[in-house]
């Protein structure tokens, strides 16, 4: 009872990276809380799936294994989690901020009347004193995320309702197995105790999954553009530079919303988190949501016409000027020096 649960996503017999990242974070939080880490897997053909999960320090693994439970549909997964959480009374539940986690999390929180914070960039344990009620809450989950489209970081807590639920995007937390031989207790509950026939009213007729073409997350150099790039045409300059450097092209949300570049390249709180050797920020002002996705870059070059752009505070090199002038020069001098 009162343990920390991670909902683990599985596709084609492989546990999703985001779930392993949450297990890693969950293990640390559970140690701090002196509680157990429990994993929930709902799907089909889950033989040996526990071998992928237990090295991350899960004490208990629930495997709900039934052909009808994969691919994911909302109602059966929601029914299982709602019933399981009513029985087990977790204090914390973590889900990936994926299309599945974002579909499932709110449904479950609504049924359990528990608080859910989306897209957290950091999770910590701490106390809270409610001065009005003269009450002290021990060991709450601080769900930390940027808010209000601006330079604000909010610490969200759920003082009274359990579980405390949070979603986190892939790549935000680090993935680190702790012990290849860690032994978990595996439960295989009877599916019929958790779902009813009516949960299968929604049917998947067809499904086309594509492997992600882009690997911005794994790129060692990222050339990224913001609203200041000014147009879709100007973005071509960034692709040129990326080509020459062997880099990937990323973008801020403002550039995506302006239609300069596809959403799949968005870096930041609601996009991808990157940790490259070099991040070249072109025409990016540096809103906190964007910084959340790139601030662990080893080196940052900021190119901006505004000498006071917030991104400059993160930068190792600040170039004040027009990127249409700067980028061609970077390409030229790179070529000259690598001949």
């Amino acid at each position: 009872m009162n343990n920390l649960f991670v909902y683990c996503e599985v596709e084609d017999g492989v546990v999703a990276d985001v779930s392993l990242e949450l297990l890693t974070k969950g293990r640390n939080l559970a140690n701090e809380l002196k509680c157990q880490l429990e994993a929930v897997v709902i799907g089909s053909s889950l033989d040996q799936i526990e071998d992928q999960i237990s090295p991350f320090g899960a004490d208990v693994i629930y495997l709900f294994d039934d052909p009808r439970l994969a691919p994911y549909t909302t109602a059966p997964h929601a029914s299982i989690l709602i019933k399981l959480f009513q029985q087990e009374q977790p204090q914390i539940v973590l889900l990936g901020a994926t299309p599945i986690g974002r579909d499932l999390g709110p449904r479950v929180s609504s049924a359990l009347h528990s608080g859910l914070t989306a897209d957290c960039t950091s999770l910590e344990i701490g106390d809270h004193e409610d001065k009005k009620a003269n009450k002290v809450y021990k060991d709450l989950l601080y769900q930390i995320r940027p808010a209000f489209g601006g330079n604000i970081i909010a610490w969200i807590i759920n003082p009274d309702c359990r579980p405390q639920m949070a979603t986190v995007r892939e790549g935000v937390m680090r993935k680190q197995a702790i012990d290849a031989k860690y032994k978990a207790i595996v439960h295989r509950p009877i599916i019929a105790d958790y779902v009813s026939e009516t949960d299968f009213a929604v049917q998947i007729i067809e499904r086309h999954l594509e492997k992600r073409k882009l690997n911005i997350k794994g790129a060692s150099i990222v050339v990224s553009g913001g609203y200041g790039v000014g147009s879709k045409e100007n973005f071509k300059l960034l692709y040129d530079l990326a080509d020459v450097l062997g880099a990937e092209v990323g973008a801020s949300r403002a550039a995506v919303d302006a239609g300069y570049v596809d959403h799949e390249r968005q870096i930041g709180q609601t996009g991808i988190t990157v940790r490259p050797k070099l991040y070249i920020a072109c025409g990016i002002s540096g809103q906190v949501q964007h910084r959340a996705g790139m601030e662990e870059s080893a080196q940052v070059i900021a190119i901006n016409t505004d000498p006071e752009a917030p991104i400059n505070a993160l930068a190792d090199y600040v170039i004040t000027g027009d990127l249409a002038e700067v980028i061609p020069k970077m390409i030229r001098y790179y070529k000259e020096n690598t001949k």
Partner: peptide, 20 residues
């Protein structure tokens, strides 16, 4: 159920950047 415990304006400690 969710309450905002606190909000913080992010004040960046500027790195010692090379300015060009």
């Amino acid at each position: 159920p969710t309450k905002v415990k606190r909000i913080e304006n992010v004040v960046l400690q500027a790195k010692d950047a090379v300015r060009l």
